[in-house]
């Protein structure tokens, strides 16, 4: 083996290790995308005048399996599951399908949790730390297969209710801004 080949192998190994670290890492100090303001979230697809350039907000937890599993735990602990079940919905709408009343991007979901929505979604402003909201956001997106398969939760420890996020078919989100109070809680 030449030194050159060895260097290449080592570089590859280092890159793999780095990626794996991100997937598995557990932070002691949380620095999620809290710096980006959720007030910049648009609630409409209709933008008057020339297009402005949106800077997409990245939720680093979507690359971290531990954070997503934390999101799953918190989803139950804060009673999200009381209304949305295991993604199929009930009192609140389903989260595992391709219909997104208030948007499917991480910042949309963050905003929905923090601000609440008029037809029954409570506002959790000041009740859940921001980093936990971002963890929940990552888990919510995993329910419809929007997270990489190696990040999404696999079989959970409870009674099997439906396909686990890791095996959920990835659904292309469709924005369905349906304001009718009577139709969509």
């Amino acid at each position: 083996m030449t030194a050159r080949t060895l260097r290449g192998v080592l570089a590859l190994a280092a890159a793999a290790a780095a990626l794996a670290c991100q997937r598995e890492t557990r932070r002691f100090r949380e620095s999620p995308p809290a710096a980006t303001s959720e007030t910049a979230v648009a609630m409409s697809e209709l933008v008057p005048g020339p297009k402005t350039r949106d800077l997409p907000i990245r939720n680093p937890y979507e690359r971290n399996a531990y954070a997503v599993s934390e999101g799953e735990r918190l989803f139950n602990a804060y009673n999200c599951s009381g209304c949305h079940s295991h993604g199929g919905g009930g009192i609140g709408p389903a989260l595992m399908d391709d219909q997104w009343i208030y948007g499917s991007d991480p910042e949309n979901i963050f905003s929905t949790i923090v601000e609440g929505r008029p037809n029954g979604m409570p506002t959790f402003r000041g009740k859940i730390p921001n980093y936990q909201v971002w963890q929940i956001v990552a888990y919510v997106r995993s329910l419809s297969g929007l997270l990489p398969k190696d990040i999404a939760p696999a079989r959970d420890d409870h009674m099997v209710a439906g396909p686990e996020p890791q095996r959920t078919e990835a659904l292309r989100p469709k924005h369905a801004f349906t304001p009718s109070a009577a139709d969509h809680p």
Partner: peptide, 20 residues
């Protein structure tokens, strides 16, 4: 009838407190 009235997802057996 929540599965129809609430557009619930039938893949989740626990939806609507398990009625789905």
């Amino acid at each position: 009838g929540g599965i129809v009235a609430g557009d619930l997802d039938a893949r989740d057996s626990s939806a609507a407190l398990g009625f789905v």
